[in-house]
Nucleic acid binder design. Sequence first.
DNA 1: AATTATACTGTATATTTTTACAGTATATAA
DNA 2: TTATATACTGTAAAAATATACAGTATAATT
Lengths: 205, 205
Amino acid sequence: MKELTKQQSKVLACVEVYLNKTGFPPTRAEICKELGFKSPNAAEMHLRALEKKGYITIQSGSSRGISVVRSQQSFEQSGDQIPVIGLVAAGSPTLAEENVEKRIPCDPNMFSDNFDYFLKVKGLSMIEAGIHEDDLVAIKKTSDVKNGDLVVVRLEDEVTLKYFKQTNHSLELIPANKDFSTIEIDLREQEAFIEGKSVGLIRTH
Amino acid sequence: MKELTKQQSKVLACVEVYLNKTGFPPTRAEICKELGFKSPNAAEMHLRALEKKGYITIQSGSSRGISVVRSQQSFEQSGDQIPVIGLVAAGSPTLAEENVEKRIPCDPNMFSDNFDYFLKVKGLSMIEAGIHEDDLVAIKKTSDVKNGDLVVVRLEDEVTLKYFKQTNHSLELIPANKDFSTIEIDLREQEAFIEGKSVGLIRTH
DNA sequence: AATTATACTGTATATTTTTACAGTATATAA
DNA sequence: TTATATACTGTAAAAATATACAGTATAATT
């Protein structure tokens, strides 16, 4: 997906907010009014650019004929179909279509903090925390984590779900199963990517 | 909510389908084309009726200024605010307002089976099934349960969440914690109300 | 120094769209 | 029988809207 300029981003946000508020897209003139432009052509140009970059489609000749194809803040707010990503041993959990096992209709604000996707749990390393195989852990993409948080960490090509504990250069990834041992990493020697943290869990009975 | 005439219902469905397909509402002329009317006024009249009955709002003077307020089908799928009921020792879990601890925005179809409310778990009797205190168990109201299902049962004034097992006149309510013992009931002597069964679980981290 | 991309103003016009008004037809209720 | 509600056709005008064209200005590349 191509990057948006600041102004294009503003226009897209404006369209999304308007849609959210009224249920139908804005006209060029309304976008101008909202963003302070004085010519409808200003909005027109930005819309054309957004169309060219694949964020919206414009139905030519139709009033308000704007469809938002890809929201810029994406699925985070639209409360619809949240993707489920398999916790595979290799590679980072990305939202690329090929990694999406399925989608679940639910609201990303159902937990205290909103979240971006579900991670399907493999293995028993967190079972004493009541996290079973095939449970779906709701992950918020962030690198802002605290000690004690349940986090998704990528070490080289391996992705794991563990409790987080960091002291100076030492990172500990702590399981909740006495048969597993804590992973200790010296951050001066090895990189660790924090993909996100868990804000909740769901399980189908 | 007032009842719709057949034609009004058709027009509302047409608007919803169009919105779903294009992302913006139809014009009067487009509704006519879709439903075979020959005058834009036909659509206009139906829209005005729909507005008067509270199904849509029309922004006067705006093209395509239609907002669907209440979708005609399915208030069940609109994935909104699911009540959370505390698992209190006394009384049946009802959806009466005074028993609703809070509401969670989510879709009742997020699990394999749809459900009616969340029950907040008290105690540790199911901990070996990975069900912790304060977990929210999604309950579908039904008395159609099988052995092995996780069910909500009311015994006199006590409500409990346990595994279900019935043989003839004997009902066993089985915990998932070796420190708790199975509740055995002779149904000829004592009544047991099956309030529903669990179809899923959520937990906030 | 010239080119290109971004970001607009300002104007104009063809087209789309809303919306009012004048009718017709039919079934149901008073 | 006379209203009254539903369900349209047909027309037309005013208003809303998309969209093309002609410019201006500025910062970043080449």
